[in-house]
């Protein structure tokens, strides 16, 4: 399980897990799960486009993910779920058209959708590490105002928090996470990682700092367990990520309900 060809898989999975968990906490806090689902799909279209013009897929992922994030931020102030849905189908349709034009073969699509953690190269691990450092720095910088505006945008705005700029910054952060996670765990499961473990963490932890740490830890546990299970069973890693994330959430909810039931007899 720890053979040389697995090392990159473990490293990449670890990096993706930590940053997805941390950013995911705010995805849940800000009710942006739909955007967090749509943005990786925008990234998917970018990868398809990059394949078509012969550019680096990672570049395509980053550019398209950031573009979808800014689109959702700019248009989605009020009816954000409708705008998000439209942005999502636009990017997917664009991806479908680009794939049809490039004539890419199916395994490449499967890899983008469901991830291919075993195929991660050293260069991708380095790129991931840089992105993790960057995203971590941004998150640390805006942590407090971001938390504040997640609790009540109205009150935070009255206190002078630049809520719109912050929302755009946050969605770009989601986009960076998507761009780096998509090639590893795939578009569909990048999303599972940004919602399940953080939602579990916030049901259990009391303070925001602890919730952040717990979200990263649970996400890490999810990915590590998924890599090990995928290795042992030979089944796709995506299945295990989705299943473990759901299990974490259900268990955390049950634990929180049980604790509350005991607190008020």
């Amino acid at each position: 399980m720890f053979e040389p060809f697995m090392v990159n898989a473990w490293l990449a999975g670890t990096l993706v897990a930590v940053v997805s968990g941390a950013v995911g906490l705010f995805v849940v806090e800000r009710h942006r799960a739909f955007a967090a689902h749509a943005i990786p799909n925008g990234a998917f279209a970018g990868a398809a486009g990059a394949t078509l013009v012969g550019a680096s897929p990672l570049l395509g992922l980053v550019v398209f993910a950031v573009a979808s994030a800014l689109g959702v931020a700019a248009l989605g102030r009020r009816r954000n779920d409708v705008v998000t849905a439209l942005a999502l189908v636009t990017m997917l349709a664009l991806g479908a058209a680009l794939l049809a034009a490039s004539g890419a073969y199916e395994p490449a699509i499967d890899a983008l959708l469901f991830g291919q953690v075993l195929g991660v190269s050293r260069g991708e691990v380095v790129a991931l590490a840089l992105l993790v450092v960057g995203a971590g720095a941004v998150l640390a910088l805006v942590f407090r105002p971001l938390l504040y505006s997640s609790l009540s945008e109205e009150v935070a705005a009255a206190r002078g928090v630049a809520v719109r700029a912050l929302d755009a910054t946050f969605l770009v952060l989601v986009a960076m996470t998507a761009a780096l996670a998509v090639p590893v765990v795939g578009t569909l499961l990048t999303f599972a990682l940004t919602v399940g473990p953080p939602a579990a963490a916030r049901a259990l932890a009391r303070g925001a700092g602890r919730a952040l740490a717990l979200a990263a830890a649970l996400s890490l546990a999810c990915v590590w367990a998924a890599i090990a299970s995928a290795y042992l069973s030979g089944w796709p890693i995506g299945f295990f990520v989705g299943a473990y994330a759901a299990v974490e959430y259900v268990v955390a909810r049950a634990a929180s309900a049980w604790r509350e039931g005991r607190a008020r007899p």
Binding site: P145, Y148, A199, R202
Partner: peptide
């Protein structure tokens, strides 16, 4: 489920705008 205590939220009134 918001993981924020009462005291933390009140403190954000003072330093919630700080980076």
């Amino acid at each position: 489920d918001v993981p924020v205590r009462v005291a933390d939220f009140v403190a954000l009134g003072v330093d919630g705008t700080r980076l």
